[in-house]
């Protein structure tokens, strides 16, 4: 899927720049966005997801320009799946309803069809027994698997994941990353913001390094990790390796 931005930037107040103007154009299958905290990764992902508007610039996904008016954004969001770092599930709904209600209300599934689709996904992600539980009764890893199930339920053309494992214990991190890898094997296209460098390197085709609001490096994951060009990326990767086993 082709993703393109032109002069895309985001700033809140004149002095508070999140993203410097950037251009980008490439065919994206699986892309990892890496970089230090506060570098604008989540903001960029939200702009791509149609959740916040850029200050300047234009954005094309699948060669359609994303227009920044609420009506067309709402249509666009239906075609995208979004997984948040945490707290993205509706807390008053069961796991099943979290998946089934949007299917029924947004995507026009019938009640029975939305429930059977939700159950099918929960079963697939090993959550069949937890269908009736509210998010608070699920572990962090289970919550994120439900969130992923909800995001892919309506077969979106692109899945966006914003640090889906950052709030999780290591053992849950693995179970969530495994789910994402499985989705990749089925051909799901996604962009993931992550601090899991192993996953970015081995499970994503492409990687982008975002630092202080600028896109400093972009390329094949294997290449980018093996031969970082900028000093910032070298330093960033060096820090991560410091405590590796």
């Amino acid at each position: 899927m082709k993703i393109k931005f032109q002069n895309l930037s985001k700033q809140y107040e004149p002095e508070h720049v999140i993203l410097n103007p950037m251009d980008f154009e490439d065919e994206v299958h699986t892309l990892a966005v890496i970089g230090p905290s506060g570098g604008g990764k989540s903001t960029l992902l939200r702009i791509i997801g149609g959740l916040i508007a850029p200050t300047t610039g234009k954005l094309w996904v699948d060669s359609d320009e994303i227009r920044q008016n609420e009506a067309s954004l709402q249509q666009y969001r239906k075609t995208i799946g979004f997984v948040f770092q945490q707290g993205g599930l509706f807390r008053h709904m069961s796991a099943l309803d979290n998946i089934a209600v949007p299917l029924e209300q947004v995507h026009g599934y019938s009640r029975t069809k939305s429930r059977s689709r939700a159950l099918e996904l929960l079963e697939r992600f090993g959550l069949k027994e937890d269908a009736g539980k509210k998010p608070a009764a699920l572990s962090g890893g289970q919550q994120q698997r439900v969130a992923i199930a909800r995001a892919v339920a309506a077969q979106p053309k692109l899945l966006l994941l914003d640090e889906p494992t950052s709030a999780l214990d290591p053992e849950y991190t693995t179970e969530v990353l495994n789910v994402i890898r499985e989705l990749k094997e089925e051909g799901m296209r996604f962009i993931i913001v992550t601090h899991e460098m192993g996953f970015a390197r081995h499970a994503c085709d492409k990687a982008a390094f975002l630092c202080e609001g600028s896109l400093l490096e972009y390329g094949e994951s294997a290449q980018l990790f093996a031969h970082p060009e900028t000093e910032q990326l070298q330093r960033f990767l060096g820090k991560l390796l410091e405590w590796n086993v």
């Binding site: 997801g49 959740l51 709402q74 969001r77 239906k78 995208i80 979004f82 948040f84 945490q86 707290g87 993205g88 599930l89 509706f90 807390r91 949007p102 209300q105 947004v106 995507h107 909800r150």
Partner: peptide
């Protein structure tokens, strides 16, 4: 929470 409203937008409500 803001996150609940953002999730609502993300699912297309």
């Amino acid at each position: 929470e803001e996150s609940q409203l953002e999730a609502a937008r993300a699912v297309g409500f």
